[in-house]
Amino acid sequence: MVSIEINSQTLTAHLSGDIDHHTAAAMRTEIDRAVKSAPIDKLILDFSNVSFMDSSGIGLVMGRYKLINELGGKLIVADPPAYIAKVMKLSGIGRLCEIINTVRR
């Protein structure tokens, strides 16, 4: 599931539940619709409530990077749970976007 929050130029997409091949397509559509309809320069993908993610999630992040990059903005990945952070590290996605921890978990 995705819930969208817009605060001036920053759009935060709060993701929750499992991110896999089955769920990623709908998440992608929702995020992209929101990104294209608001004048933003920063997209934050909030992973704090994601219960599962496989490489389909990496595809999702890489695709959003492409989109926001074309629009001249930047992408931030926030609060991935420990083992999801491991999948992200493996993918080298940290070279495309900042991965931050905002909450102590």
């Binding site: 990623a24 992608r28 496989d54 490489s55 389909s56 999702l60 890489m62 491991k86 999948v87 493996l90």
Partner: peptide
């Protein structure tokens, strides 16, 4: 074109 990252095997290996 389907936003596959090509990382499935790398994840399984690691």
């Amino acid at each position: 074109e389907e936003e596959r990252a090509g990382l499935g095997f790398a994840v399984m290996e690691s």
